[in-house]
Every structure is written in structure tokens, then in C-alpha cells.
């Protein structure tokens, strides 16, 4: 069953158009990678999808509902769990408070999150700003999970992290996938994406130019659009 369907989505930052037609579909339980070079509209697509940026055209349907005109917090309540770019925790709050503020009833509970990221469990009373970068990322993911989302959106979740910590995050993403979580991933590391994503959508200059199974992502495609 289709969980998310974006078709012909356009968006602009004031007078500057950033998205010129993004098509993206994601089925329940599927992991889709959103790829593209820097500045091609990946984060803008995420912002438009989560209604943080209004779409100027096209349609976004999520869980059978048209998101047009919906305020961002309502879209989040429908089950869009965003882990924003750059490890965005609530710095003045403790780890436990960061998690508690987001929690909505559902299958994910505090113990589920601390099982996924044992390091968070050890630091529940600690202030979020004192965490390492990797731990902050884990906290941001845990916070999104506690909203019990139907779709988890990870925007550059491993960017700027040490290799070992990246592996930990990727292992968690794989565990979430095997648990049946629907995930939309934005990342640059093709190798890790290939290991977890079912399908990929490639953006170029604000347009989706390629979509298909991860296995069909040939070197020609990656050369042309990702510059690898």
C-alpha cells in the first residue's frame, strides 16, 4: 500500500524557485533513498513534505490524506517523524526530557529507544548539549521514534560523524527496517544506502530525474547524477 506519494511538487524560497517537479512514492514498510548532489533540493523536498515549507504546486498525499494546507504540526501528528539535518536536539533539556516532550502513545516507548541506542539509556539525566555528535543524532532519531511515526525521515543522519558512530547509526536503521518501519533516507554514502534502501529517487536541480530499485542504480546513473 502506498504510504507517501509526491507528484509534480514545486516549491520556492520567496522568489527563488527550488523545486521544479519532484515525484516520489513510498510504500508501507519500504526504505527509499533520496539522492542527489549538494544543492539539488533534497532538504527542500523534505521541508516541503513535512510542511515546514509550503508547496507551490503538485500534490503530496500521505497515509491517504492530501497534506495541502495542513499546518506542519498537524502533518507531524499524522505520522511524519522527521530527524532534521544537523542533529537538532533541544539543548537546554535533558536526554529524558528531549524524549518525553515528543512522545505520543504507540508501539515505541522509552525502553524501545534505549534498547536501540543503549548509550542514550546511560545518559538519560544528562543535558542534551553535553552529548557527543553521534549521541545527539541518536537522540534526534529516538525523539522522532517516540512520536510513533508511520514514516521516519532521516535527513543526512550520518553527516559529519566518526566512522564507528556512523556504523552504529546504520545498524540501527537496518534494525528499524527489519522491524517493518517505513523510512525515507537522505544521505550521500552510496555504499551504506545500497545496503539498506529498497529503492532510490535521484534529484537534479529540483527535479526527480531517476527512480527505481536500488539494484538498478548503475554506475552510469551514479556518475551522471551523483558525480561519484
Amino acid at each position: 500500500m502506498t504510504l507517501l506519494e509526491m507528484s509534480g511538487v514545486t516549491a520556492a524560497y520567496g522568489p527563488v524557485q527550488a523545486l521544479f517537479g519532484v515525484d516520489l512514492a513510498l510504500a508501507e514498510g519500504e526504505v527509499v533513498a533520496l539522492m542527489g548532489r549538494n544543492g539539488m533540493g533534497k532538504t527542500t523536498t523534505i521541508r516541503t513534505l513535512t510542511r515546514l515549507l509550503p508547496a507551490s504546486g503538485g500534490t503530496i498525499r500521505f497515509a491517504g490524506r492530501d497534506l495541502a494546507g495542513l499546518p506542519a504540526h498537524r502533518a507531524a501528528q499524522l505520522g511524519l517523524g522527521l530527524v532534521p539535518e544537523g542533529r537538532r536536539c533541544f539543548a537546554p533539556l535533558s536526554v529524558a526530557e528531549n524524549l518525553a516532550v515528543a512522545a505520543r502513545p504507540g508501539a515505541w516507548t522509552l525502553s524501545g529507544v534505549t534498547e536501540l541506542f543503549p548509550r542514550l539509556g546511560e545518559r538519560l539525566g544528562q543535558n542534551a548539549r553535553t552529548l557527543s555528535g553521534g549521541e545527539q543524532q541518536m537522540l534526534a532519531i529516538g525523539r522522532a521514534l517516540l512520536t510513533n511515526p508511520r514514516l521516519l525521515i532521516l535527513d543526512e543522519a550520518t553527516e559529519g560523524l566518526a566512522p564507528l558512530v556512523r556504523q552504529e547509526i546504520w545498524a540501527a536503521v537496518r534494525r528499524l527496517k527489519s522491524g517493518g518501519m517505513s523510512i525515507l533516507l537522505v544521505d550521500k554514502s552510496l555504499r551504506e544506502l545500497a545496503a539498506v534502501a529498497d529503492r532510490a529517487v535521484v534529484l537534479e536541480r529540483g527535479r526527480s530525474v531517476w527512480a527505481g530499485a536500488m539494484a538498478a542504480l548503475t554506475p552510469e546513473v551514479t556518475d551522471r547524477y551523483l558525480g561519484l
Binding site: 513535512t50 498537524r74 507531524a76
Partner: peptide
């Protein structure tokens, strides 16, 4: 949390 960052609060609904 909203004092620190409004859009992050929005993102958790």
C-alpha cells in the same frame, strides 16, 4: 523546547 527552536517543536507535532 519552543524557546530554543520553534521548527523542531513543530517537527514533533
Amino acid at each position: 523546547a519552543a524557546r530554543q527552536n520553534e521548527s523542531r517543536v513543530v517537527a514533533v507535532g
